[in-house]
């Protein structure tokens, strides 16, 4: 009774220090090793917050050392299994972080970027590099269209801020010069690309020019770095065909 009341009236810093030390000593078990328990029992002797923190900090180091020593005593089979589990979990987490924020593996469901990217192609896009070194004309980017929140589309950068974009006889004209790109015919409204925006067109212009080509630069999520392989309609990797032609 006395002990529990004392614990309840303990300063929050001391309670946190005790908690951290208890976790390091016991983990999920009811009792830790004898040395960890010894350090935990001595915690009550410390006075004040700083001594408690210092005791807990050193105690955590000692308890971890004790646990490592106990781990070395385990049978080889158990150690290998634990290491394998840890490896799989770490690799899974690393793959998730990579896919989500660094280098994304994606699928192209539509012919909008044909002939550069065919329907069912898999490609890699970089999600950090373009933010550091900027976009260039001719880059292929993945962006989030305003009319499709949550969706993504893939386009080529035609114009950067300040560029004057026009179309003449099916060819794109940038700042008065024809953009020598042997893609399908383009048709567009003359535009000067505003600050903080990019001018995007699909390579397969007949298929995918219904959207507004002027896109806020913040909507760009990644830049394609490599086309990998074609999944094909019969490939087991290919997700079900989508009806939109983005």
């Amino acid at each position: 009774m006395t002990a529990s009341r004392e614990v309840a009236s303990e300063h929050v810093v001391r309670r946190l220090a005790r908690f951290a030390l208890t976790v390091a000593v016991r983990g999920r078990r009811a009792n830790g090793g004898p040395w960890g328990e010894a350090i935990l029992a001595e915690f009550a002797q410390t006075c004040g917050q700083w001594e408690a923190i210092r005791w807990a900090f050193g105690g955590i180091r000692a308890a971890l050392q004790e646990r490592r020593a106990a781990h070395r005593e385990l049978p080889r089979r158990v150690r290998i299994r634990r290491r394998a589990i840890r490896f799989v979990l770490t690799a899974g987490l690393a793959a998730f972080v990579l896919q989500q924020w660094v280098l994304t593996f994606s699928y192209q469901p539509s012919p909008a970027m044909a002939p550069t990217l065919q329907t069912s192609d898999y490609f890699l896009s970089d999600r950090i590099g373009f933010r550091l070194i900027g976009l260039d004309r001719g880059d292929i980017v993945v962006y989030q269209p305003s009319d499709d929140p949550g969706g993504t589309a893939i386009r080529r950068v035609i114009g950067l801020p300040g560029d004057r974009i026009d179309c003449r006889a099916g060819l794109v004209v940038r700042n008065g010069a024809e953009v020598g790109e042997p893609y399908l015919p383009a048709d567009c409204i003359p535009t000067i690309v505003p600050d903080g925006s990019v001018y995007l067109l699909a390579d397969n212009r007949a298929m995918a020019n219904q959207t507004d080509p002027v896109v806020d630069a913040d909507q760009v999520q990644g830049r394609m770095v490599a086309r990998l392989w074609n999944g094909g309609p019969e490939s087991w990797l290919a997700p079900p065909a989508r009806s939109d032609t983005r």
Binding site: W35, I39, E42, W55, G58, G59, I60, A62, Q65, E66
Partner: peptide, 16 residues
């Protein structure tokens, strides 16, 4: 620990 001035993280590994 008080007498020697050793932190718990130094003292206990030696004791172990």
């Amino acid at each position: 620990s008080r007498e020697t001035g050793l932190a718990s993280g130094t003292l206990y590994p030696i004791l172990m």
